[in-house]
């Protein structure tokens, strides 16, 4: 894929759509275009969290292995959404397994590459943190509601 096409596609992703051209170029220097077949795993719990993903098509399910209860899927990430923040926070390890539900196309952003850019350009770093804080807040709220198990049977 040529860089110009990539820029166009990324421009329309909600996570990036309002990012300045300069920062977009910074991001682009760390991106790869990736595909996953249905049922394959993008990453596994405990592995090094080397990147984050912008999902373009397909859906990714986050799984927890809960012993005798088997594998429980607790969240899905759909097109337009961001998968993964562990690349940003030490010790940079994945907390879940991420399984492709249907064929998945995504952009993968290299974590180490981005961390270096964040360190050298704090303005860029702030922009990344601001966007990820929002995602973290959304996930935190959702997790709290999920924990309350509001539809639980009495």
């Amino acid at each position: 894929m040529r860089t110009r096409d990539l820029t166009e596609i990324l421009r329309h992703h909600p996570f990036i759509s309002d990012l300045s051209d300069h920062y977009l170029q910074t991001l682009l220097s760390c991106v790869t275009n990736v595909r996953f077949k249905e049922g394959s795993y993008l990453f596994r719990e405990g592995e090094e969290a080397g990147s984050f993903y912008l999902i373009r098509t397909g859906r990714v399910a986050l799984e927890i292995h809960a012993g005798e209860r088997g594998t429980i899927r607790v969240q899905t990430i759909s097109p337009g959404e961001v998968l993964g923040w562990s690349w940003l926070i030490s010790p940079y390890r994945w907390q879940f397994d991420a399984c492709a539900v249907g064929d998945v196309r995504a952009f993968a952003f290299d974590g180490k590459c981005l961390r270096t850019k964040c360190e050298t350009d704090h303005d860029f770093g702030y922009e990344m943190l601001r966007r990820f804080s929002h995602i973290l807040e959304q996930h935190l709220k959702a997790t709290r509601l999920q924990l309350l198990d509001v539809y639980k049977r009495q």
Partner: peptide
Amino acid sequence: VDHSDSSWKGHIGVVTN
């Protein structure tokens, strides 16, 4: 749905998501 096994192909997560 709040959670599921792998047989469900739809969204997983709370309704506000």
